[in-house]
């Protein structure tokens, strides 16, 4: 399912003294199967953008289309919601069920599964997020750690088997290993099932590592739309709107300064740098390695 936005405007509290235009004139297409990171400073309109895509907010003007469905129309939104999975920011703030099983099952009511089917489905997705179903399904969501609860919220969204997964800062507040784990889960599902992922992040490091495309929102407008490999080339555009270099980017800069002529310009992932260094040193060019000292 593709996503199309055509000159979309998002307005909060229209026709009141508090009216605020959060997004203006956004046009973009996200083809099916893409992994898109949405970035921008606090208050730039990122959450508004993904909520418009999900039909949780309605465009004040313009059109949002998800697959064949025009999201401006209510019956269409209901159909589109079957294909959409949305994980809000800090999902653990809205736990309402008494057990992990019920929490995950709560979102699956509309699928018409039998009890057995439901059981199977919950178990399957607990395992997808790396939690042992036997141990967790009867646990209270209030007695497990924040990282586990985040994984359970993700399992709940994935269990409905959406074609499009929309996530609002899925790794905020988690420690470094838990962050890697959550993103690896998402990436794996994305690759295995070819689903579209659209996710908000403040971490450039993550966006470069996992996404195929980075959308940058600034003051309610689409400021940049680029591939992670273009980040370094277009840094001059990004710096003024609050982008800060990651350790990898700083390292590459210094690497190039120190060893002119090395081809690191197109690198944007840590793996690439590691294999570059490894190849250079393992590839028999010992002289070249020695030259580093």
């Amino acid at each position: 399912m593709d996503i199309h936005l055509e000159r979309v405007t998002g307005v909060y509290s229209p026709k009141t003294p508090y009216t605020k235009t959060a997004l203006e004139g956004i046009s973009l297409s996200i083809p099916s199967g893409q992994f898109v990171a949405v970035m921008g400073v606090n208050g730039s309109g990122k959450t508004t953008l993904v909520q418009l895509i999900c039909g949780l907010l309605h465009a004040a003007s313009g059109h949002v289309k998800v697959g064949p469905y025009d999201m401006n129309k209510k019956p269409n939104r209901r159909r589109a919601w079957r294909a959409l999975g949305y994980l809000p920011q800090y999902p653990e703030h809205q736990v309402t069920e008494d057990t992990v099983f019920n929490h995950i099952a709560a979102g699956l009511g509309h699928l018409g599964l039998t009890d057995e089917g439901m059981n199977e489905r919950v178990q399957q997705y607990l395992e997808v997020v790396g939690l042992c179903s036997e141990r967790y399904k009867n646990a209270s969501p209030f007695q497990i750690s924040g990282g586990e609860l985040r994984r359970i919220a993700l399992a709940g969204v994935l269990a409905a088997e959406p074609n499009i997964l929309v996530l609002d800062e899925p790794t905020a507040g988690l420690d470094s290993l838990e962050r890697l784990y959550i993103l690896a889960c998402i990436k794996q599902i994305h690759l295995k099932k070819g689903i579209t992922v659209c996710y908000i992040t403040h971490r450039l490091e993550e966006a470069m590592e996992y996404s195929d495309r980075i959308l940058v929102v600034e003051q309610g407008r689409l400021y940049a739309d680029l591939h992670p490999s273009e980040i370094r080339l277009r840094w001059r555009e990004l710096e003024p709107i609050g982008f800060v270099k990651t350790p990898l980017l700083r390292f590459l800069d210094q690497f190039e300064k120190r060893f002119a002529g090395h081809r690191t310009q197109s690198m944007y992932k840590e793996d690439q740098l590691v294999s570059y260094i490894t190849e250079m040193c393992a590839g028999g060019s010992q002289d070249e390695c020695n030259g580093f000292d």
Partner: peptide
């Protein structure tokens, strides 16, 4: 401590495989 080491440490580990810490 179940933490991902910082970037500098990750790079050091790679460099150590090739005796390249000084580099």
């Amino acid at each position: 401590c179940r933490l991902r080491p910082p970037f500098r440490t990750r790079m050091r580990d790679i460099a150590a495989n090739w005796d390249m810490e000084s580099w």
